[in-house]
Design a protein around this nucleic acid. Structure first.
Lengths: 334, 334
DNA sequence: ATGAAAGCGCTAACAT
DNA sequence: ATGTTAGCGCTTTCAT
C-alpha cells in the first residue's frame, strides 16, 4: 500500500480510502490510485486489516464429517448465510473426537473468527468459557453443548423417534429392533428414548437384544441386524427396525437386501432422510430432519449475536417430519 | 501478551518464547508465564502472528457446491491433508458462477492463504496471475484452469466416457442418448467427446436429438430423457442412456422408474458413482471417479509447492473405473 | 536466559 | 480533499 501511495504520488490514507471505497477522494486521484494498484498487482493484506479492526469477517464451523450427506447441506447453509453477511467460512471435521474438536475450536479462536457454529463431539465445553467471555459468539447445532450455556438449534429427536416407532406399531408390529449410533451422542440417546417411549405407550416390552446402540460401522450394524432377525434363545425375531440415523439406515437396507434376507419382508423406519430413499424397493419410510434448515437457523442465530443481541441463550427446536414411503407400512411377516 | 508479561513479571519476548515452545527459558520462568496465561485466559492472536510471519497456515478451497455428494468427499480429503500439514481449510462454493469464483478466490488471497485448491467455474484465470506471482500456490482439480499454467489433477473423463458408451454398444445398443452437464464445463465436454468417439469407433451415427447437454436441473433432464425415449419424427427412440454426471444420473433414474416408463427396460451407464447405486433395481452401472483421491492428490501437490518445489506445473491424470451392476448390461428393448 | 526496540500493513483519529 | 501519526499484537533482531 505504501508502494501504491508512492507510485500514485498520494498519501497512505488516500490509498486506504480508495481501496475501501470511502468517500472524500477526487475522481482524478481515485483514478491515479487505481492505476497504481493495477500496475503493482496490489491486494490489501487482510491480516493487517484484521489486526487493526479486531474483526475478521469469518466464522468457523466444526462438525463431525464434512463429507457426511447429512452434514454437508448443513455446512452449505451456514456458508450461504455467512456469505450474505460478507463473511468467509473456515471449517473442520472433528471425526467425532472430543480432543480434535477442542484443537480445532481453539485454532479457530486463535484466528479470531467472529463466531463459531459447532456440532459438538465433546461433552464438556468449559474450555470455551474464556473465548466466549472474550466475545466469540457461539452457536451449537444438532447437539447441545456440555456444561456451558449457549445458543442451540436442535431437531426434536425424541418426538420424531417416538412417532416413527409409533408408526410401526400402528402397522401391527410388536417386536421392533432399534439400531442406533453411540449412545453418548445426544441425538442417539434422544432417539433411543423416543423408541422406548413409543414402546411403553403401546404397552410393549422391549427385549434387551432388540436394542443395539453402538456406532455406524456397517459391519456391526449388519451383524446386529442379523442377530435380531434370526432371534436369540428366549427372544423371538423382530419384524421391524427403527434405525437411529442415515448411516445406520443405509447399512440396514444393505442387510435387508441381501439374498438370504429377501424372502422375508422386514419393515423399516429410518431417522434422517437420504437421497434415493424413494427409489429403493420398498421405498424407505423416514423421520426426516432438514439439515440445511438447521444450519441456516444456527447461522442466523450467530449473526444475530454478532449484530449485538445479548439476551439469554436461545434454544430453537425444529420439528421432524414422518415421510411414509412403503418400508414402514409393511405388515409383520412372522 | 503484554498483560501476560506484566503479570508474570517478564519481558514480552519471554512470553512469546513460552507460547511458541522455543528454547531458552528456565523452567521456573516458564511455569510463571504459564500460570499468567491460564489466569488471563490468554490465546495468541494469530492475525498479528500472520502479519509478522507472512504465512497463515491456511489453504483455500473453492468448488461448485460443498453439499454436492461428489465434491464433499473431495473437500474432506483436502481438509485431511491440510490438517496433516497443520493448516486450516477455508472453503467456499462458487455455485458454478465465474464471478462468484473470482470474488471468493480474491477474498482468500486477501486473507493471504498459503495456497489454493480450485475446481474452476470460470474459463479465464488470468486474474490469478498477480497472486501466483506473489507466491500463492495454486492447484486446479477436476477441471483445467483457463489461460494460465498451473498444477492440475484430472480424471480421465474422455477415456472413462468412451469406455462407458462402448460397454453399452457391446451389449447390443445402437441408439444411445447422451444427457450431460453444461458443455462449457470441461468435464462435460470431455465426456461428450468420449461418447462421440465410442459411437464413431463402432460406426454408429449420432442423431442430433440424442445429445442433450444442458445442466443438471432434474426437470430438464427428465424432459430430455422423455423426448429421447418417445422418439421424434425421423428419429427412433433410444434404447440406452449415457449420463454425464451423478446429478443427471439420479434425475434419469427417477424418470426411468416412473410408472409410465417401467414397462420398457432402458439401459443406463452413468458417469460418477453414487451411494446406493448398487441397491436400485436394476443396480446402476457407472464409470466411477474417486473424488477423495482427486482431492488428496491436489492437496498433496499443493503442499509440495508450499514445501518449495518450483518445477514445471504438473498435470496428474487419474483413471476411472467401470463398475458393471446391471443397468448397463440390459439388452436393447426395441 | 532474558529483554528492548523496530516493524509487519493496515486503519482510526486527528490534522491540514 | 488529503496527509500524518499512532498503534493493533505479535516476531525479529540485537543487546545484555
Amino acid at each position: 500500500m505504501k508502494d501504491v501511495a508512492a507510485r500514485a504520488g498520494v498519501g497512505l490514507k488516500t490509498v486506504s480510502r480508495v481501496v475501501n471505497g470511502e468517500a472524500g477522494v477526487s475522481t482524478d486521484t481515485e483514478r491515479r490510485v487505481n492505476e497504481a494498484i493495477t500496475a503493482l498487482g496490489f491486494r490489501r493484506n487482510d491480516s493487517a486489516r484484521v489486526l487493526r479492526k479486531g474483526s475478521t469477517s469469518s466464522v468457523g464451523l466444526v462438525l463431525e464429517d464434512l463429507a457426511d450427506p447429512f452434514y454437508s447441506p448443513l455446512s452449505r447453509a451456514v456458508e450461504e448465510v455467512a456469505r450474505a453477511h460478507g463473511a468467509l467460512l473456515i471449517n473442520g471435521s472433528s471425526a467425532e473426537d472430543p480432543e480434535r474438536e477442542r484443537e480445532l475450536v481453539l485454532a479457530l479462536c486463535a484466528r479470531r473468527v467472529d463466531g463459531l457454529v459447532i456440532v459438538p463431539a465433546s461433552g464438556d465445553h468449559r474450555y470455551l468459557e474464556p473465548e466466549m467471555a472474550a466475545g466469540v459468539a457461539t452457536v451449537f447445532v444438532d447437539r447441545p453443548p456440555g456444561r456451558i450455556e449457549a445458543d442451540l438449534v436442535l431437531s426434536d429427536n425424541f418426538t420424531g423417534a417416538r412417532e416413527g416407532v409409533a408408526h410401526l406399531i400402528a402397522h401391527g408390529h410388536r417386536r421392533i429392533g432399534f439400531i442406533g449410533d453411540q449412545p453418548r451422542i445426544h441425538t442417539a440417546g434422544e432417539r433411543l428414548r423416543g423408541y422406548r417411549a413409543a414402546m411403553a405407550e403401546a404397552g410393549l416390552a422391549v427385549a434387551d437384544s432388540w436394542v443395539a446402540p453402538g456406532g455406524t460401522d456397517p459391519q456391526r450394524v449388519r451383524a446386529d441386524a442379523a442377530r435380531m432377525l434370526d432371534g436369540t434363545e428366549g427372544t423371538e425375531p423382530v419384524t421391524a427396525f427403527f434405525s437411529g440415523n442415515n448411516r445406520v439406515t443405509v447399512a440396514l437396507v444393505r442387510e435387508l437386501a441381501a439374498p438370504v434376507r429377501r424372502e422375508r419382508a422386514v419393515a423399516l423406519v429410518g431417522f434422517d432422510d437420504f437421497e434415493l430413499a424413494d427409489l429403493l424397493s420398498p421405498a424407505v419410510t423416514v423421520v426426516a430432519q432438514d439439515p440445511a434448515d438447521l444450519g441456516r437457523n444456527a447461522a442466523e442465530l450467530l449473526f444475530r449475536r454478532l449484530d449485538g443481541a445479548d439476551d439469554e441463550p436461545r434454544r430453537v427446536s425444529r420439528p421432524t417430519r414422518l415421510i411414509a414411503r412403503g418400508s414402514g407400512e409393511l405388515p409383520p411377516s412372522l
